[in-house]
């Protein structure tokens, strides 16, 4: 987590610098030619998806984006973001998420449309809990390759998750089991189930009633990050939590 924060600050600084630099660019074109963009810089690429792409009011969806060769990435309505990541969103009306990625090789953009279906009436739950607050307090547990053993770092996180859930006794959660995209799809679905269930057991051991926790495996069907490197694979090997509404 700490490294993520560092990266966040670093990218903020990078954004600030770039914004200034870009501002200078436009004005100072004729007399002192600015250093030309390195000819070798590849153009940035960007993708963004929202899952599901249709929700009812009060429902949540997950934005997932991925860029490459970009130093300044922002999503309208979300703000500046890392090179790849996910975020839970819960808009009350249909929203188009517009991602702009700028880098030394140029800029590109991508959009994802989330339709909020107005047909269903909003459900009132006993406790108001928005997705963002939930996500801030109930964090995912990460796993080693081909393993569903709870690591010490995951144990700490799950204990914190359990204490948050214990202090919000009306919340019900879904545990999703996820795997990186190596290996076989069917086997990964079974492995993801073991991961979700291991996280569920940790919550139960932390005092949460089993009937508050549902598990589902996404195997390698839903990826948080799609680059072929260990950092990305690690992000994908997780048990993640969402509100069971």
């Amino acid at each position: 987590m700490r490294t993520l924060h560092h990266r966040h600050f670093a990218s903020l600084i990078a954004v600030a610098t770039l914004t200034l630099a870009a501002g200078c660019h436009k004005k100072a074109v004729p007399p002192p030619p600015p250093p030309p963009p390195a000819a070798t810089s590849p153009a940035p690429t960007a993708t963004i998806t929202v899952t599901p792409d249709t929700i009812t009011p009060g429902g949540g969806a997950v934005l997932a984006w991925k860029t490459s060769d970009a130093t300044d990435i922002s999503i309208d309505g979300v703000g500046t973001v890392n090179a790849y990541g996910t975020q839970n969103v819960q808009p009350t009306e249909s929203t188009t998420y517009h991602l702009v990625a700028r880098g030394p090789g140029g800029s590109t953009d991508a959009t994802a449309r989330l339709t909020v279906n107005a047909a269903a009436p909003p459900q009132s739950t006993g406790e108001t809990m928005d997705e963002q607050m939930f996500e801030q307090n109930v964090k995912p547990a990460f796993f080693d390759y081909d393993s569903y053993d709870i690591r010490p770092d995951a144990q700490t996180i799950l204990a914190q998750d359990a204490s948050f859930l214990a202090s919000h006794p009306t919340l019900k959660v879904v545990v999703g089991g996820y795997c990186d995209d190596r290996g076989s799809a069917e086997y990964n679905l079974a492995l993801g189930e073991n991961r979700a269930n291991a996280a569920k057991q940790a919550l139960v051991n932390g005092g949460i009633a089993p009937d508050r926790i549902r598990t589902v495996s996404y195997g390698k069907e839903k990826q948080f990050c799609s680059q072929a490197n260990e950092q990305c694979w690690q992000l994908n090997r997780r048990a993640g939590f969402s509100l069971d509404r």
Binding site: D146, Y148, G183, S184, E186, Y187, L189, A190, L191, E193, N194
Partner: peptide
């Protein structure tokens, strides 16, 4: 304990099933 998935019957006899198991680690 662990993933057990992807069964396939012996179609000649239907008396045996092969499958994929992660009971010892890698499948």
């Amino acid at each position: 304990k662990g993933p057990d998935v992807s069964p396939t019957w012996n179609p000649k006899t239907n008396a045996q099933i092969a499958w994929c198991s992660g009971r010892t680690g890698l499948p």
